[in-house]
């Protein structure tokens, strides 16, 4: 039995990130609670981070540009989470609900 597939390499991280990203996407698509949507968004961000770091380590290890990008994504997702939650709270005051289907103000 060839167990070399268990020896981790770049592909393992990429596939893991893909799976996490897809799960996050699934959550975004199916959740009705808007906070859960936000959580899944963070999940997808983390998947992207894993990708950045893994690519950096395997393809260009001596320059840590991937890490820098990961830090920026971290910053942006923190900002996004803060603003997103603020918006959710503001919306909740209006609608008295966190159901995404109720937030259809885009429709005239």
């Amino acid at each position: 039995m060839d167990l070399s597939i268990f020896n981790i390499g770049l592909t393992h991280f990429i596939v893991l990130a893909t799976i996490l990203f897809s799960i996050g996407l699934l959550g975004i698509m199916t959740s009705r609670n808007v906070i859960r949507v936000l959580m899944c968004l963070e999940l997808m961000m983390n998947a992207v981070n894993i990708n950045f770091v893994a690519f950096n380590n395997y393809l260009n290890p001596e320059i840590l540009s991937g890490h820098v990008f990961a830090i920026f994504i971290l910053t942006v997702s923190a900002a996004e989470a803060a603003v997103g939650l603020a918006i959710i709270i503001a919306l909740y005051r209006q609608k008295r609900t966190v159901d995404v289907d109720e937030f259809n103000l885009l429709k005239l």
Binding site: F13, I35, L38, M39, E42, N46, N49, V53, A54, N56, N57, Y58, P61, L64, H67, A70, I71, L74, S77, A78, A81, A82, L85, I88, I89
Partner: peptide, 25 residues
């Protein structure tokens, strides 16, 4: 992947900060 600083930052920002913000929400 040799990203020790990022690991700590991740732990602090996401695992602690983000989760708590979510719970507050």
């Amino acid at each position: 992947n040799n990203a020790d600083f990022l690991a700590i930052a991740q732990m602090v920002v996401y695992a602690v900060g983000m989760t708590i913000v979510m719970l507050f929400g």
